Structure formats: structure tokens, C-alpha cells
Simulated scan of single mutants.
Amino acid sequence: MVLNISLSAIDIQFDNKTDQVSLTFGETLVKGSNVQLLIEFQGVLNDHMSGFYRSSFKNSNGSTR
């Protein structure tokens, strides 16, 4: 059974020391359920290796991603 339920965070906490965000929702997720988290981002994407930045890697085929 697939349910399409949209929940908005009722609280968002940002820890500057660890650069982690905690989201609180009004409902508890059921263990084993599949969820999709959508986050809108607005800011500068940079190459300074801090915050939200561009990165790449080579997969097992040697292709850069």
C-alpha cells in the first residue's frame, strides 16, 4: 500500500557546532516505511569545501559523477 502524505516540519533546529539540522514532525514514522524528504535550498553553491558545496567521485566504471 502506498500512501501519499505530505508533512511539514513543525520545528527546525540548526546546530552551528556540528553543522547538523534536526527536523521535528507532528507524526511519528512507522518503522520500515519508505519516505522521501524534500528540502528546498536557496544559497550559493561554491568550491570552498565548506557548507553545501560541489563534489565529485569516480564510480566503479571510472566515470566521474
Rank of each mutant, 00 (worst) to 15 (best):
V2N: 08
S22W: 03
L7N: 06
G51H: 01
S55L: 02
K58S: 06
L3M: 12
R54A: 07
V21E: 04
S60P: 00
T64P: 00
G43S: 02
G43A: 04
V21P: 00
S8E: 10
S55E: 07
D15W: 01
D47H: 09
G51Q: 02
N59A: 02
V35S: 10
Q42P: 00
Q36T: 14
I39P: 01
F41Q: 04
Y53F: 13
K31T: 10
T24V: 13
S8H: 09
K58R: 12
T64N: 07
S60L: 07
G32K: 11
N59V: 02
G62R: 04
S6I: 11
T64S: 05
F25L: 12
F57R: 06
S63G: 08
L38T: 14
E40M: 01
F57Y: 15
T28L: 13
S56M: 06
F52T: 03
S8T: 11
Q36E: 11
F52M: 05
S55R: 05
T18C: 02
L38Y: 10
L29A: 13
Q42H: 06
Q42S: 13
R65E: 12
V2K: 15
V44F: 03
V2S: 13
F52D: 00
I39K: 08
I12V: 15
H48M: 11
S56N: 13
S55D: 13
G62Y: 02
T24G: 01
Q20Y: 05
S33N: 07
M1E: 12
Q36N: 13
M1V: 12
S22I: 12
D19L: 08
G51W: 01
L29E: 09
I39R: 08
D19M: 08
M49D: 15
S63H: 10
L23S: 05
F25K: 04
N34Y: 11
Y53M: 04
I10L: 08
I39A: 11
G43Y: 01
V35N: 06
I12C: 05
Q42D: 10
R54S: 06
E27Q: 15
I39H: 00
Q13T: 14
S33D: 11
L45H: 02
E40W: 03
G43C: 02
A9D: 07
Y53V: 08
S50R: 12
F14R: 05
K17Q: 15
K58F: 10
K58I: 01
R65D: 07
L3F: 11
A9Y: 00
V44M: 07
S22P: 00
V2L: 13
Q42A: 10
G32V: 01
G43L: 01
L7M: 11
N4E: 14
R65L: 15
V2M: 09
